[in-house]
């Protein structure tokens, strides 16, 4: 298997790993966002809590949770490795750089956006994953939905979540189509479609997630 390790450790291989783990995380976000969006049914969290209950006890989902953490860590580790590698390739910086003339700022800032996302994720996991999985605070009378209501009373927390979602949106806007390019899927027939789906996906995911803390904070859902 030395041949595979060699390939995955090449500059192309590191990007392939980034693309595969990225697309995996993209697919996870669909499920996460879809399930959470049930709060907008405004049924007092009934559908949401049922969904959360299912996710917490289904053995396939629990196994996928481990795979998900693995994929996330791989994405972070590989991103860090690429960032450290790439940094060394230009030891003397340019005095003047007109980046806006040839590329989008968010495509050049994936490391920064990823770091912001990681910081947000630590806070987010502490709020809900840690609370529901590693403590005994979750009860019949205090559900995950109730915990969301409590957490999102703080304007600072809501602001952090909205900023996290904006970072996520831009990270996805570049990452979605970039992953397909890295996989070698660039063709006049389907690249415009991939880019369009990527843009729509990024906006919907970021807007839907950001709407959740905002809705709780302004008591738009009970």
């Amino acid at each position: 298997m030395a041949w595979l390790a060699k390939s995955l450790n090449s500059s192309l291989g590191k990007k392939l790993l980034m693309a595969i783990t990225g697309l995996f995380l993209i697919s996870f976000l669909v499920i996460h966002c879809g399930l959470n969006a049930t709060i907008f049914l405004n049924d007092g969290g009934k559908a949401f809590n049922e969904g959360a209950e299912f996710m917490a006890h289904n053995p396939i989902i629990r196994t996928m949770e481990i795979v998900l953490f693995g994929g996330l860590l791989l994405h972070i580790f590989d991103g860090l490795r690429l960032w450290l590698d790439n940094k060394k390739k230009r030891p003397v910086a340019y005095a003047v750089v007109d980046g806006a003339a040839n590329s989008k700022w968010y495509s050049r800032s994936m490391g920064l956006l990823g770091t912001l996302l990681l910081l947000f994720l630590i806070i987010h996991l502490k709020h809900f994953w840690y609370f529901s999985r590693l403590t005994n605070n979750l009860t019949e009378t205090h559900t995950l939905y109730n915990e969301m209501q409590v957490v999102f009373t703080s304007p600072i927390v809501v602001a952090i979540y909205v900023l996290g979602c904006i970072s996520l949106g831009y990270h996805l806007l570049h990452g979605f189509q970039s992953a397909f390019q890295t996989l070698g899927w660039n063709h006049p027939k389907y690249t415009p479609t991939i880019k369009a789906i990527g843009a729509i996906y990024s906006i919907i995911i970021a807007a839907a997630f950001a709407a959740m803390p905002i809705a709780f904070y302004f008591n738009l859902i009970q």
């Binding site: 390739k89 980046g99 040839n102 590329s103």
Partner: peptide
């Protein structure tokens, strides 16, 4: 060619598209 490219000390691709534009 990819092995030589890496050996020479060029970076990886971020798909920013700056190369194509310039």
């Amino acid at each position: 060619m990819v092995a030589q490219m890496d050996e020479e000390g060029f970076g990886a691709c971020s798909n920013t598209g700056a190369c194509e534009a310039e």
